[in-house]
């Protein structure tokens, strides 16, 4: 494991076009490292497509297809089935889509693919907003967060995408983040071993949109995990939950205070965030213990 992280065979080469310190670019690099060269990758309009590079250059050393915004899943499914028809049964097809492309505009097509249990790995690069178009609110944006279209703070709560995916009873779903690289890469490897629709929800800090310093992407996600804002867990077959990291349950303040997008929060809003996080954490633990036995 250690040798792998210290001496990685990179699939993502230098020269990507993301902003300095981009957590999404880091996340993609780790995912691809675990995926390996023997794979086909789909990207859709999002910062993941920017990372992939402009024609005729390519930052990723795998066959890569830039599809339309809301069809990451059916695009990957089309390739995956076509490869099967050609007798190439052993080539994983992985799709990267943003939170907008997943939680919002691509939800229907993702649901369709998950329902059919298409053989693909779907990685949602969640930077909690429409960043490629310049930081607008999505249904993955946390409550109270600033974006260009929620200038006084987002009024809606973050959509629980993992519950939606679990409801499809897909074989594998997991959360991950760049602050826990080994956990992330192990999950990609585990996903690779399974057939059917596999979903990874990857928290991907965006220094530009979150208003954090360039070196902070991994640290911010560690705080997200340790405050239970973004717990690390897996769901097998939509029912069996496993929490992967014993969190320290730090106060949410430890996460919020790191980011400019939460700077305007009132004391009341902080308390509300805390109680919402506590509630979600309780539900998750109940599920994990409930199905574990």
């Amino acid at each position: 494991m250690l040798t792998e992280t210290s001496r990685p065979t990179e699939v993502m080469r230098s020269g990507h076009l993301a902003c300095p310190g981009c957590g999404l670019a880091m996340g993609m690099r780790m995912v691809l490292r675990a995926l390996g060269h023997h794979a086909v990758v789909v990207v859709v309009p999002s910062c993941a497509a920017i990372v992939s590079g402009p024609f005729p250059n390519a930052a990723l050393d795998v066959p890569l297809f830039h599809s339309a915004f809301e069809v990451a899943a059916p695009t990957a499914a089309g390739i995956s089935n076509a490869l099967k028809v050609q007798g190439k049964d052993d080539i994983p097809v992985l799709a990267f889509a943003g939170d907008g492309g997943t939680f919002d505009i691509g939800l229907q097509s993702l649901s369709g693919a998950a329902d059919r249990n298409e053989d693909l790995i779907y990685v949602c690069m969640d930077n909690e907003g429409y960043m490629n178009t310049g930081i607008q609110v999505s249904s993955a944006t946390p409550r109270f967060a600033w974006t260009g279209t929620s200038p006084t703070g987002n009024t809606r709560r973050k959509k629980q995408i993992m519950e939606i995916m679990a409801a499809h009873r897909i074989p594998y779903a997991a959360t991950a983040c760049v602050g826990f690289p080994e956990d992330l890469m192990n999950k990609v490897k585990r996903a690779k071993e399974i057939r059917g629709t596999r979903f990874i929800h990857l928290l991907s800090p965006c220094p530009t949109g979150w208003k954090i310093e360039e070196h902070m992407s991994p640290k911010v996600t560690v705080a997200a995990v340790e405050t239970n804002i973004f717990p690390l867990f897996e769901i097998y077959d939509g029912t069996r939950y496993e929490i992967n990291h014993e969190s320290r349950s730090l106060p949410v303040e430890r996460y919020l205070s790191l980011q400019g997008r939460f700077r305007h929060l009132t004391e009341e809003q902080r308390l509300e965030t805390q109680s919402e996080v506590d509630q979600n954490w309780k539900v998750l633990n109940a599920k994990a213990s409930g199905y574990a036995c």
Binding site: V42, F65, S67, A68, E70, V71, A73, P74, T75, A76, A77, G78, I79, N81, A82, L83, K84, V85, Q86, Q108, S109, S111, G112, A113, D115, R116
Partner: peptide, 26 residues
């Protein structure tokens, strides 16, 4: 061949075109 029973025409065309680019008749 394989019949993909899609959830919309928009997705059907997305799957067809990516399958075609993979090199199969769609």
């Amino acid at each position: 061949g394989i019949m993909m029973r899609m959830e919309s025409e928009h997705s059907a065309m997305a799957a067809c075109l990516s399958a075609s680019l993979t090199g199969v008749r769609t």
